[in-house]
Simulated assay, not measured.
Amino acid sequence: MADSGGGRRAYIGSFTSEGGAGLTAAAVDPVSGALTVLGRTVAVPDPSFLALAPGSGILYAVSETPDGAVAAFSVAEGGTPRLLAEPVPVGGDAPTHLAVAAGYVFTANYGSGSVSVLPLGPDAVPDAGGRGVRGHRGSGPDPERQAGPHAHCVVADAGWRWLLTVDLGTESVRVCRLDHSGAVPRHEVPMPAGTGPRHLAFHPGGDWAYVVNELESSVTACHWDDDTGALEPVGRTPTRPPGARGDNFPSALAVSADGRHAWVANRGDDTIAVLSLAGDGGKPELLTTVSCGGHWPRDLAVDTAGRHLHVANQRSGDVARFDLDPATGVPHQGGSLSVAAPSCVVFD
């Protein structure tokens, strides 16, 4: 949706438990990509992840709390997002991610290791009465991080035929068929042992999916068949250069609209990994890493124009803005917006 001045908008989620302002709306400069705050609301605690329903003027936010919830906001009017109804419990602990598809909101509940399915009512508000919760089972080799399931990400394919759920604890991706009842489980795809899958994004060509691995600092490239829902891991690419030392926990991945490059946020190294997707069938190649412009990059996103990368640096309290070199994909920092404890940024 356009703001009152005719431009595009960005929405930033932040941790209120860490001093964040909750949900921030900002205008996007069409040339520089700079963000200017339009309004803020703390109507929902810890709105750590956001998703826009395409063309609807509705923004959805998880509330990453022990009694997790999801809330719907109207953003059609510009300025401060308006809460449409009281947040709806998801029936799971600490939802970290959500997707809106096929008339439903889906949340990945990290704490309880489950995925919630909530139908949308005619007012676009999630309906708790029709809620379904599907628990995951399993574990991984890391006794501290993988003693049980930890669903971290839910992503629908472009055609709204499939829902993929990434579980760091069970070290797998579950593929579900989307239909009138929400999401019907079809099969579970093991990911490489010890990698800790966290986040997934599709290549715009539709034949590849990329899984960010939090415990190994790598990206797993997977063949994807949208006719059958088959997901096949074929190789891994590091997100840090050889010889890098110290703890590092990759968080999010963004793919360019032309499918030539991808970027991964490295928490610990405080860098952005620049990946080329122009090689063998779209398999990534690490080109370089650059500073994230702050500390602890939890999320990143490319703006609608595809010319700027924005990075939510949780612990330094800023959203850093980068100009993207169209030939190399290398980001060059152009500025930042001060936002306490940012955790997510999305663009309309």
Rank of each mutant, 00 (worst) to 15 (best):
D3V: 04
S4N: 13
G5E: 08
A10F: 05
F15M: 05
G22Y: 02
L23T: 02
A25R: 14
P30H: 01
A34S: 09
T41V: 10
V44R: 06
A51W: 00
L52A: 07
S56C: 03
G57T: 06
G57R: 11
V62H: 14
V70Q: 07
D93V: 01
P95C: 05
A102Y: 02
P122H: 02
P126W: 00
G130W: 14
V133I: 08
H136V: 00
S139H: 13
D142R: 10
P143S: 06
R145Q: 14
H150V: 02
A158M: 08
C176S: 15
D179L: 01
D179S: 09
S181L: 05
S181D: 08
G182P: 13
R186G: 10
P190C: 12
P197G: 11
H199A: 02
W224K: 08
D225A: 10
D225V: 05
D225K: 09
T228A: 03
G243P: 09
G243K: 04
A244C: 04
A244P: 06
N248W: 07
F249P: 10
L253H: 11
L253M: 13
A257R: 15
R260E: 10
A273R: 12
L286V: 07
T288P: 04
D299V: 07
V302E: 04
D303F: 03
P326M: 01
V330R: 15
H332W: 08
S338R: 15
V339I: 12
A340N: 14
A341M: 08
